[in-house]
Design a protein around this nucleic acid. Structure first.
Lengths: 198, 198
DNA sequence: CGCGTTGTTGGACAACTGCGCAACGGCGGG
DNA sequence: CCCGCCGTTGCGCAGTTGTCCAACAACGCG
C-alpha cells in the first residue's frame, strides 16, 4: 500500500468507514471491515483514531456536513424566503435509497451509547435547525412569513421533515418521497401563514 | 431452571431480551446476553425462535404495542376530540429517560437490515398513524377541527412528535420534554385550525 | 407403569470483535 | 550519505458472535 500523508490517510479511513457503514450500518461497522475496505491492516486505524467511536464520529461528520453544505448553497441560490424554504425542503427529502438519511437513523440510535458520535450528531442537528430558523427570520423580516416564535417554528418544520423522511427510509413504501415534499410544504404554509413558492 | 410452558417461556425470553436491549441497544442484543439474563442456556432461545431477528421483532412488538394500548385508552378516556388529541400528545412525548423511544430509534435504524423487525415496526407505525387519523376525523365530524386531508394531517402530527421526541432522547438536553408537548400543541392548533384543550 | 413427546442443557463450532505490539521500510534532516 | 523518525504492517490475544446439536429430564397419554 502506498504511503499517504496523515491528512490523506485520515480521509481514506473516513471514506472506507462510510463505505462499510453504507453496507452494514454505522453501529455494525468494525475496525477490521474498514481496514479490509482500504486494503490495509487494522492496526493502521488505531494509529489515527483512539477508538472506533472516534472513527464513526468522523465518518458521520464528513457525510452529514457535506449534505448540510449542499443544502446551504441550495438555499443561498434563492432570492426570497418562500423560495429558499422550498429549496431547503426539496434538498432535505430523501430518495427511497438515500443512504445519508439511513446514516442519520443509525447516528440517532447510537448517540445514546457513543459519546463522540452524539457530540457530532447533536452539533450538526443544531446547525440544520439554525439554517431553517434563519430562513424563517428572513421571511418574517421581509413580510413573507408570520410567526411569533421562529425558533420553535424551525424546530417544528425540521421535525416534520425528519419524521416523514424517517418513514420513507425505514419503512420503504409506507409513504413516498413526493408525500414528504408535498406534506412538508403544506405544514410550512400553515406554520408560517403563507403560500410557499413552487 | 424450572420448566415453563411454551407461552411462559416465550414471554420470559421476550422480557429478558427487552432488559438487555434497554442496556445495550436493540442491534447489539445477543443470544448469549438474553440467555444469561434469563439464567438459562443459549440453545433454549433457538428452540423458540428461528433467528435473532425474530427475537428482536417479538421483543420490540411487545414493548411498543404496550405503549400503543396505553395511548389508546388514554385517548378513549376523553370526551371531545381536542381533549383526546391532547391526551395523545401527552402520552406520546417521552421523558428524558424514556427508553421505549430509544427502542423506536433502534428499530427504525435496524429496520433496513432486519426483515422481521421492519415488518413489526412498519405495522405498529401505521397503527399509531391510524389512531391519530381517527381522532382528527372525529374532530372534523364534530366540528372541532378543520382539515381537507385527515390522513396527511395525521402523518404530519405524528411526524412532528417523532422528530421532536427523537431530539430529546438522542441529544439529551438539546430540547426538553416540555418543549415537545408545547410545540406539538401549537402544531396541532395550526394544522387543524383549532385551539387544543388544555 | 412405560414410553414418546418436548422443554432444557451445555458445549462445539467457525467466524469475528476491539485492541496492542514488535518489527519493517521509506522518507527527509543533518 | 546515513541515520532517526514515523507511517505502516501483520499477527497475537482474549473475548464474543450466531447457530447448531447430542444428550438429559420432566411431563402426560395410553
Amino acid at each position: 500500500m502506498p504511503r499517504l500523508s496523515p491528512a490523506e490517510r485520515r480521509r481514506a479511513i473516513v471514506d472506507a468507514a462510510l463505505a462499510v457503514a453504507r453496507r452494514q450500518g454505522l453501529g455494525a461497522t468494525t475496525v477490521r471491515d474498514v481496514a479490509a475496505e482500504m486494503g490495509t491492516s487494522s492496526g493502521l486505524i488505531h494509529h489515527y483514531f483512539d477508538s472506533m467511536d472516534d472513527v464513526l464520529a468522523a465518518a458521520f461528520e464528513h457525510a452529514a456536513s457535506g449534505d448540510l453544505a449542499r443544502a446551504r448553497s441550495a438555499v443561498a441560490a434563492e432570492q426570497d424566503a418562500p423560495a429558499a424554504l422550498d429549496a431547503f425542503i426539496r434538498s432535505y427529502a430523501p430518495a427511497q435509497s438515500d443512504w445519508t438519511m439511513q446514516l442519520w437513523l443509525d447516528a440517532w440510535a447510537e448517540a445514546a451509547r457513543r459519546p463522540a458520535l452524539q457530540h457530532v450528531s447533536r452539533r450538526l442537528n443544531r446547525e440544520w435547525q439554525a439554517l431553517v430558523r434563519r430562513i424563517v427570520e428572513y421571511g418574517v423580516a421581509s413580510g413573507a412569513f408570520a410567526t411569533d416564535d421562529p425558533d420553535a417554528a424551525a424546530w417544528r418544520l425540521l421535525s416534520v421533515l425528519d419524521g416523514l423522511a424517517l418513514q420513507v427510509v425505514a419503512h420503504d413504501a409506507l409513504i413516498s418521497r413526493d408525500d414528504v415534499v408535498e406534506w412538508t410544504r403544506t405544514a410550512a404554509e400553515r406554520e408560517l401563514r403563507v403560500r410557499a413558492a413552487r
